[in-house]
Design a protein around this nucleic acid. Structure first.
Lengths: 144, 144
DNA sequence: TAAAATCCCTAGTTTTTTACTAGGTTTTAG
DNA sequence: CTAAAACCTAGTAAAAAACTAGGGATTTTA
C-alpha cells in the first residue's frame, strides 16, 4: 500500500507551483531545491504532468512552469492518477479493468479491495491544491 | 498505491480458513489449490501469519491450519499489517514513524497522506473475516 | 514399523520496478 | 551572442517482489 516517489515528488511539485500561482513561471530548479527532490528526476515527472495538461511550460530564459488551471480546479487525485496510474490497491479493482480473473464474479476479497479503493478515491478527489495552500496558511497563522 | 501479492494471497488464504472454521485443520495444499496461489510461496506467508498468532498449525498427516481466533475476531487490517507492514502510503505517515524528515512539522503533502492512511485503516479495520463470509453467503443466497 | 502426509525452514534465483544519472538538443530573454 | 531554461531519451544501479527448490521434523495410519 505504498506510494512511489513519483506521486510523492509530483504532488510536492504541484503544491509548490500552487503556492506561487499567479507569479511568473517557476524554473524547475527552484521547485526541486525547495522541495528537495533530484532535479533531473523531477524533470521526467513534470513532463508527464505537462502532457496530461496539468501544468504549462514556458521555454527559454526566465521560463519555467505554471499550473495549467487554477489550484481550485486540480485535485490530488488528478495528480496521482497521472503519475501513478489508476487508483487501485489491486489491478482487478481499477476502473478500467477488463475482467480476466476467473473468480471475478464471485470474489469476496476483491470486494474488500474495491471498498478500499473507493475510500482512497474519495479522499484524493476531495482535496484540491487550493485546499492544501489554505491549510498551509492556517498553520502559519496559528503559529504567529 | 498497490498491494503486493503477500497481502492479496494472504487474505485469500485467511478467508478460505474462515469459510471452513470449525472443521478439521485444512492442509495448505488445499488452500493453495482453492485460492489458486503457488503453494510454496503461500507457505512462507502463512508462516508469518502463524508467528503473529493469527493461525495455528497441526503437524503431521491429517494436519493443516486453522484460525487461531474466531473469524469475528480477525480483521482484514490484522492480516494486512502482519504481511505488508504498517498501513501507510508513505513511511513518514506510519504510526511508528520517528520523525527524521526535516519538513516534518510543516509538511502539507504529509497531511494529505495521513488522511489517506486514516481512510484505509478505517475500512480495513472495520471488515472482519466473518463479515466476508457473511457477504459470500448473501451473494450465494441472492443467486438461488 | 514403515510409509505417507503434512508442517517447517532457509537459501537461492529470476523478474520487475524504482529511482535515478547523464548528456545531449531546442528555445528565448536580455 | 550568451546564458538560462525547457525538452528528450537512453542507460543503469539497487532494491523489492515473487517465486522455486529442496531438505528436515512430526504425526497419523496401514
Amino acid at each position: 500500500m505504498k506510494l512511489t516517489t513519483k506521486g510523492h515528488y509530483g504532488l510536492k511539485a504541484m503544491y509548490d507551483l500552487a503556492l506561487h500561482y499567479g507569479d511568473n513561471p517557476i524554473p524547475l530548479k527552484t521547485v526541486a531545491e525547495r522541495q528537495r527532490v533530484p532535479e533531473n528526476y523531477l524533470e521526467q515527472l513534470i513532463a508527464v504532468l505537462r502532457r496530461a495538461g496539468l501544468v504549462k511550460s514556458v521555454r527559454g530564459a526566465q521560463g519555467g512552469y505554471i499550473l495549467a488551471k487554477r489550484p481550485e480546479e486540480i485535485t490530488v487525485g488528478d495528480v496521482i492518477r497521472v503519475l501513478e496510474g489508476p487508483i487501485a490497491p489491486l489491478e482487478c479493482v481499477s476502473e478500467e479493468y477488463i475482467g480476466d480473473c476467473d473468480q471475478f464474479h464471485y470474489c469476496i476479497t476483491r470486494n474488500v479491495w474495491a471498498k478500499v479503493r473507493d475510500s482512497i478515491v474519495e479522499v484524493l478527489d476531495s482535496i484540491s491544491l487550493a485546499d492544501m495552500c489554505r491549510e498551509a496558511e492556517e498553520i502559519k497563522q496559528s503559529k504567529e
